[in-house]
Nucleic acid binder design. Structure first.
Lengths: 209, 209
DNA sequence: ATCTTAACGGAACGGAAGTCCCATTAGCGG
DNA sequence: CCGCTAATGGGACTTCCGTTCCGTTAAGAT
């Protein structure tokens, strides 16, 4: 006569449970790309994943919690950074990677939906979604930060440069453009983002206080 | 035996209709601040605004359409730009204004909710919301762009500098920080955003192609 | 001031989203 | 290989969102 298990899917994570999770997360991606976060329906998801409706409700409970799980899954697939030898080249490579991701119909829609999910329901929804999003971006930034550190060591940048802030400065204009304007994310925009971040970093705008 | 009117609220926009609109939009702001866009419920809104549920559904129909109307309303309250005399001062003033807005509990939550609404439901929802958001930001950028134009005329920046892009470059890092990291939007972050945009502009990173 | 009808609002309706119950399936430890 | 039970899934049930119907109110024109 044990009470309810704390969180379903933790005691027996292998085999079927893992298969169900993968199927639902993949279905969630598809649904987010098609209908966005606002149109995410757990019942529809169960059909897509060929999984019982009850299972989806029991395992995740809410759409935001499911997005949190999806973000955790996405964070595990980290992309290796470039190593071109120069700061300009590395930042350009990073900018083009971000641009390609956001400009891709599928990936771009997914990122917009995920951002909306994490920022569209404060207080009410579980804070786990916001935390998952932060972890995702922290990880991505940490992956590329060494580019800046190396540039500092080569003497290209001031010694007390905040390497994380430089990497974020590359992505920021691309995200801002995607979210607030309808202008396309072309390669020129990515190159400009990288060039601007580099110029600002050289001028010492990202030195630690 | 006329058919349904095209859009309710257009033939008799005065008096009660205007009062209802104002009450509902204000209630929508409150609800967005409290529960975010995902928790926006038209029925609850009607109660807050002390208005018939039917009216809200007939006038706006969906939560995204209501946010679109709210954005149109917000766009009309444009804030005057600063005139400090120097590019650095003007950009700092703009950065601090944006920072203050996003850091404010009410305004910040409202902006996150609105961004989520406009970017969280692509395809399915009316594209009017996205368009309203773009108009809002186009207007804000146009309000501040003269700062950059004047700096160009004073010879502080390259002649073919894209003034809109410089203004966007000031906001971008602040929005990116708000959306992807949990770090607070302090005054130092705003000053850094302004300094970075200025340095990049001086280096010619925002020259038109 | 009066008339027309656009717009509002209460109430009842239909349907879908989310929950509960319980039988069935299949991890995982022995 | 066997047994225990975590996890799944079908179906009934409940609740609430969005729509429809229709009478009432008041905006705007004459």
């Amino acid at each position: 006569m044990a009470v309810e298990p704390p969180t379903p899917g933790t005691a027996r994570p292998g085999g079927r449970t893992a298969r169900v999770r993968a199927a639902v997360l993949r279905a969630a991606e598809d649904a987010l790309v098609e209908h966005g976060f606002a149109g995410l329906d757990l019942g529809d998801l169960a059909q897509r994943a060929e999984v019982g409706r009850t299972t989806v409700y029991r395992r995740w409970g809410s759409t935001t919690a499911l997005v949190a799980d999806l973000l955790t899954d996405m964070a595990e697939q980290s992309l290796p950074r470039a190593r071109t030898g120069s700061l300009a080249g590395d930042l350009r490579a990073n900018a083009q990677l971000v641009r390609r991701t956001l400009a891709d119909p599928r990936q771009g829609a997914l990122f917009r939906a995920v951002l909306a999910a994490a920022n569209g329901a404060p207080g009410t929804a579980d804070p786990g979604t916001t935390e998952a999003l932060r972890r995702f971006y922290r990880r991505r930034v940490e992956e590329w930060a060494p580019c800046v550190t190396e540039a500092v060591e080569r003497g290209e940048l001031p010694p007390d440069t905040d390497e994380f802030e430089v990497i974020r400065a590359v992505s920021a204009p691309l995200y801002y453009r995607m979210l607030t304007t309808g202008e396309p994310l072309d390669e020129a925009a990515a190159d400009r983002a990288a060039a601007a971040a580099e110029a600002a970093a050289r001028a010492g705008a990202y030195r630690r206080p």
